[in-house]
């Protein structure tokens, strides 16, 4: 085991005593969707240097994060973290993660990749996503549980009506499994972005009219309260 130079983040957060060693680790990571009626698009799980972040609350989303949050496309983020020599698992659930379902994967991390980040778009939303942001992987072997909140990328107005998933395209992408779960004919909740930085998602408004109304989202099924996901990380010896 090699003693690596302490990173600025560790020093700043006072974690030197606990996390002074930035060594490789074997992780088992489970992501569970806790919601009643929200689907997660392909999940990105990545261990990287702690001086990197996939997103930061209060800062504008990168174009790669925008593509994930608006359309579920994680390829841009995957390329970006690969360029940083991160250790990454893309799409462990093999597609959509259904409400209350869980997916488990293993991740071997290299020296220095001591921060864990996880993102996936939430459907149906305009640009909502689950986020774990540079969580410091404990040195101590054991099982750790982290609850994730829902974030809003701040890149698209939450109009809550059918549309596209390409970056900049308005509306919700509706892949075939959600075709019968999302309404039609909504007039649109809003056309404004009130906070263009990443922030805690205000939640879906929805309505109870599948043919008209303001929203194509169901207000009794497709709302949520935080937390929206549970991440269980097992660090082995």
């Amino acid at each position: 085991m090699k003693l690596k130079q302490l990173t600025p983040l560790m020093v700043a957060t006072g974690l030197t005593a606990m996390s002074g060693f930035a060594q490789a680790a074997e992780l088992e990571v489970t992501v569970q969707n806790l919601t009643r009626g929200i689907y997660f698009t392909p999940i990105l799980i990545t261990a990287h240097s702690p001086d990197q972040q996939l997103f930061n609350v209060g800062e504008a989303a990168s174009t790669e994060l925008q593509a994930m949050a608006e359309g579920g496309d994680i390829s841009g983020l995957e390329m970006a973290v690969d360029a940083l020599s991160a250790d990454t698992v893309a799409n462990p659930a093999g597609g959509l993660l259904m409400p209350t379902a869980a997916t488990t994967t293993t991740l071997s991390t290299m020296d220095g990749n001591t921060a864990l980040s996880i993102v996936a778009m939430m459907l149906p939303t305009n640009d909502g996503f689950i986020g774990l942001n540079s969580w410091m992987i404990p040195d101590e072997p054991g099982t750790y549980t982290v609850y994730l909140n829902a974030y809003d990328a701040g890149t698209e107005a939450n109009d809550e009506i059918r549309g596209g998933g390409a970056p900049g395209a308005p509306g919700l992408p509706v892949p075939p499994p959600l075709e019968d779960l999302v309404g039609n004919g909504g007039s649109g909740v809003t056309s404004e972005i009130t906070n263009a930085t990443v922030h805690i998602h205000p939640g879906n408004l929805g309505d109870n009219d599948t043919e008209a109304g303001m929203s194509d989202i169901s207000n009794t099924v497709q709302r949520w309260l935080n937390p929206v996901a549970m991440v269980t990380v097992t660090v082995s010896e």
């Binding site: 919601t35 009626g37 409400p99 408004l205 929805g206 109870n208 207000n219 009794t220 309260l225």
Partner: peptide
């Protein structure tokens, strides 16, 4: 759903 989940919250008449 016949599955236990976290609750999405109540909506209420005033919220649509």
């Amino acid at each position: 759903a016949d599955l236990v989940s976290f609750h999405p919250g109540v909506v209420s008449a005033q919220d649509g």
